[in-house]
Amino acid sequence: MTAITPEEVEHVAVLARLRLSPEEVAHFTGHLGAILEHAADVEALDLADVPPTSHPVHLENVMRPDRVGPTLDRDEVLAEAPAAQENRFRVPPILGVEP
C-alpha cells in the first residue's frame, strides 16, 4: 500500500474545505503517511467473507406520530449565529459573485 502524496493531501484538503500552506502540505503528508503505512497490516488479513460492521447496535427505522413538540427558541439560536437577518442565518453570496 502506498503512502499518501502531497498532491493527494492537497486534493483531500479541497474536499474537506481546508486551505493548507506549502509547509502544512509537507507536514500533513508525513503525518497522514505514517498512519496509512500502519494500515498496511490490515491489508494482510483475509477479509473476503467477513461482513462489515458500521455500528455496534442494531438499528431499525422507527416511525413516530407526526406531532409538533417543543423546539429551540429561534431568537436564542440566531443570537449565537455569526450573522442573522429577518429570522434567518445570513451568509455571503452563494452564486453570482464576479470573479
Binding site: M1, I4, E8, V9, V12, A13, L15, A16, L18, F28, L32, I35, L36, A39, V42, E43, L45, L47, V50, P51, P52, T53, S54
Partner: peptide, 24 residues
C-alpha cells in the same frame, strides 16, 4: 483529512471498507 481520504472514491474499499470488516 485522513477520514476524508479513507472515504474518498478509489480508497473507500481499501481503507474504510476493510476497517469495518476488522470491526466485525
Amino acid at each position: 483529512m485522513l477520514g476524508t481520504f479513507a472515504l474518498s472514491a478509489g480508497y473507500y474499499e481499501a481503507f474504510y471498507g476493510k476497517a469495518q470488516k476488522v470491526r466485525t
